[in-house]
Write a protein that binds this DNA or RNA. Structure first.
Lengths: 220, 220
DNA sequence: GCAAAAGTGTTACTAGTACACCCATGC
DNA sequence: GCATGGGTGTACTAGTAACACTTTTGC
């Protein structure tokens, strides 16, 4: 069964998102070789015959962020024939979520250029990665109505307006501030830390953290 | 990039479900060669370098059921190293849904043995296909709360108790019959055909069909 | 006539929505 | 003191959940 007509390569791609205050961002790296030299792409790597795709994704995370464990979830596999001009490469896209505090642990001094881009302001992307990000973003929107996903982005020291803005912007939605607060508070899953957001403009917002035992609850 | 350490094979697997009255069933085929000779497995086929996985799945559907188009959706990609004892094969699982009437179009006189099994009464399965079916089944449960998925299984000539039983059994749920009826009828998406279910025991049930323009609505 | 399954309405309760003013801070 | 953004309560509406009896058929 190792016939040439069936041989192909598999690559893991990581669409990792973080919440920088009220803004969702995705991690991209800049390609230094052709094809698509100078373009930005999702972090990725070819899967070896002796590793699973999950191993491969873990290695990408460790290599790019210096973190050993992280919430990830397989999203979709892309098999368009010519998506890679060099050879037949099928891509398996994973969604990752990381909170801003954990993100501070990231390694620096890397040879490769990488950057977090706001999801509504992406640079020129190589391959089919724009399509992949758009689809992942849409899916992320529906997932962010679930408390456990929100918790991955905002485990602690978040403000309610932050969460509200992330959700309303990705879903293109208007939610009444009072009703949103009531909803989250009524679920009895967050608590005040007693601290306040270091003030920008206006009245400082209260900081909250999620409680430990969170059930699988949708907020809408 | 055609190095040996990256070469692998990809297979499409089809988990296709139908509703036989109030019972969900999945299509399996019997293996006639080793490994797992005599075991039942999901229909599947190796992906060629010049076809997409979607092409591959379409071919499986045409080969097994004689149908050219069908609702399918990619679910998950499995890459455990030794899931296939012969070589490194990564599997991409697709969910398919087919209604009983369309199913009557299927080809007969096949060389391969194939059969629809109730999802709660499966035979001995080869490879990791039991895991795959179980995961697909769980996912299908959550999807069947959406009208469009239900419609794929029951486009017309269904009874309300049939739909209710399929949903309550896969979700392991109790729903009040009166409230369930009210909910579906209130959505204004089904209409009576005027006919009745050819009676078994008890009072014959009214037959319904879905209206043409159905929005993307969740019933729960 | 009895067993089996389908059909039907009302009430109480819960959740969702709409809405406007005051508060704490920076400048 | 004014601009900015955050925090708070109430009244109304809609949705959900609980609940028991009657109808039609086969045997």
């Amino acid at each position: 069964m190792a016939l040439k007509e069936y041989n192909m390569q598999l690559e893991g791609l990581l669409s990792i998102f973080t919440a920088d205050k009220s803004q969702l961002k995705v991690l991209l790296v800049r390609k230094t070789t052709d094809p698509y030299k100078g373009y930005w792409v999702l972090p990725g790597d070819m899967v070896k015959v002796d590793e699973t795709i999950e191993d491969n994704i873990s290695n990408i995370i460790y290599d790019k962020l210096g973190i050993k464990s992280l919430y990830v979830e397989q999203i979709h596999t892309y098999s368009t024939i010519d998506r890679n001009p060099d050879s037949r490469v099928v891509a398996v896209n994973y969604l990752g979520l990381i909170d801003p505090v954990t993100l501070l642990l990231k390694k620096e001094d890397r040879e490769i250029e990488m950057e977090w881009f706001p999801i509504n302001d992406l640079p020129k992307l190589g391959y089919d990665h724009l399509d992949i990000i758009e689809k992942t973003k849409t899916l992320l929107g529906s997932k962010l109505l679930n408390i456990n996903y929100i918790k991955n982005l905002f485990p602690a020291d978040f403000t309610l307006p932050e969460i509200e803005k992330v959700i309303t912007s990705i879903l293109n939605l208007n939610i009444d501030r009072r009703n949103f607060r009531k909803r989250l508070l009524k679920l009895n899953i967050i608590e005040e830390t007693g601290e306040y957001e270091p003030s920008g403009n206006g009245r400082p917002a209260k900081l909250y953290r999620f409680k430990d035992d969170i059930k699988d609850i949708n907020i809408y």
